[in-house]
Design a protein around this nucleic acid. Structure first.
Lengths: 188, 188, 188, 188
DNA sequence: TATGAATGAGCTTTCATTCAT
DNA sequence: TATGAATGAAAGCTCATTCAT
């Protein structure tokens, strides 16, 4: 593992746990087992480290989401996306946690970075929902804009809650529950 | 407005925008137009201010959620709860934003406070879903634990996204979209 | 002495000795017997402290120079100015040292502040020389622009050299030497 | 240009602009287009680089000053020296600037180096003035010690002011103004 | 009840220096 | 001879907290 990767990994985990503002470069360096200066040598600043970290993770996530849903439509596409997101959350829970706890900060500083993040993450789902609606598989009264945010939120908070309070439950059950809720609704 | 209230309001807004760790007592005092010492005179410490603020807001929210759903069951109860949450989000958007962005921090420091918060907010919804399931109105395969987290997440992220990126959309539309998604599903 | 004054005094002395860049806020705070935070509470930043310190000292110096030369012309005016500058150098040697060693830094950061400083200090002398030239007391071929810089430089370096290497020489001798050099020249 | 020369040139320019303390090895290496390690390979340390740079420049300057004034006395000798200093300042303005802004630092660290520098630079002028005084060309009441510092200062600051604020003025005019001022005085 | 000057621990950042290549 | 990733001491700065008024 390169120095950059060690720093990256440590930063993701710590920021996910304590948040960006509450995580110190000292902690990141200590966890990565490098000197504090090395973090700055490799990333320039705390802000830049976070920006790169968000960018990299979001790129990875959205490109995978796009890939697994390619050629699929409606229910099948959403299901593939849910599976992918859940698998990524199992493997790298810290990044998922980080993503959803920092994504709706509205202070000036991050606005453009976060807008980009949201656009990418929600965009993939919104497209699938919009297509499913046009093809007649989804209810015509569905609003893709709101529905994609709500669907993503359902998935995200279910994951965070699972990670924080029920980590022993198998991923499959989570998948089934969320899928069913979002596709068929509580009424069924 | 009393001194305490002025400080409370300012703190909610600022913490919602920048997060707990990134909000300073100086900023809170300045926004509330009181001296810094006054914040300490009234709340003792930053942590205590946040604890009281969370506690007060969550109490208010959950007691209202319980109240409006009293005597109702299943769909009707959920609908009443959604209406209430959305109304509160319209009136005090900052608190909602704060609640959902700070709720899944997993550092040691807050764990007990946040566990209490989560327990209360999710509890109300979980009970309604569990009752609806038993009464046969909701699908018997629904898992109230996961479904309540997912439902809360759908509502929460839909609200945050709305507040941050579509504040001009009427609440009613949001309500309709989220209700339909959670009750009937995308398939409808 | 107020807290601000204590910090001010300490900063002048230390910056005069080691230069702006080599003087630390820790040293200034220690010498002033206040906490480091107190320096920031009172001046905001190291740069701002230096700016205020320069501004205050230059104001004092130039207003005194203007005052003592008021109503006087040519030789008499210059002599009064030299007397005043030398007296100030005896009383507050540190500020004089600081002024002349930091005055010709040409890095971007200070350019505007230093331009202002130079304008004020040289301005007073330039006016006296220009008037003396017009009144016929000074040689008509003198260029006030260059001559004022040269005169200031002669005075400044004579003072610095005196402070650093001959502090025991009486001020009067210095005054006589510099006056004679600038008014009558080496040839006499 | 050798590696050492490239580093030397870059260091002179940057230290002249920002001062010794505010100039970093990184900047010097970048400007010289070599790696940071190369600066250390060639000069050992930042302090040693500065020492060599000062020593080399001062040697060159004083040896030229001595040479051009050899065989000359009084006015003629001084005029030759002024011409030489002005020519050097035209060619290598940065070193001149550096020399006079770092020469009167009185912190312990440099004291011996700077004393040596001052001794050499002022020494040449002091000797010429002392000789001119003995030969009767200069006023017998002139104090060579003070006069040499003042004369050097006049020349130096006139040069710095010229470099910083009137670089378009021809050297000749500067030369004439300073010569006249120092030899004949303002009264003429 | 309210104030705000003062504090100092701890933060982000810089930078001279080293060393394996 | 030259490199540049890595280091860590030390710098500038922030901010929760205290306390005399």
């Amino acid at each position: 593992m390169t120095t950059r990767e060690k720093i990256y990994e440590s930063a993701v985990v710590l920021i996910a746990e304590h948040g960006y503002a509450a995580t110190t470069i000292d902690e990141i360096a200590a966890k990565a087992e490098v000197a504090k200066g090395t973090v700055y040598y490799n990333f320039g600043s705390k802000e830049e480290l976070f920006r790169q970290l968000l960018g990299y993770g979001v790129d990875l996530l959205t490109s995978r989401m796009t890939e697994v849903s390619k050629g699929l439509k409606g229910t099948a596409a959403l299901d593939a996306i849910f599976t992918e997101v859940l698998q990524r959350a199992s493997k790298t829970p810290a990044f998922m946690q980080l993503l959803f706890t920092e994504m709706y900060r509205t202070g000036r500083a991050w606005q453009d970075t976060l807008l980009f993040v949201r656009e990418n993450v929600l965009g993939v789902i919104r497209n699938v929902i919009a297509e499913g609606k046009e093809s007649g598989e989804f209810d015509p009264s569905v609003d893709p804009e709101t529905a994609s945010a709500a669907a993503m939120g359902a998935l995200a908070i279910a994951i965070l809650d699972w990670l924080a309070y029920h980590p022993s439950t198998p991923v499959d059950e989570l998948h089934k529950s969320v899928s069913q809720l979002l596709l068929r609704g509580l009424v069924g």
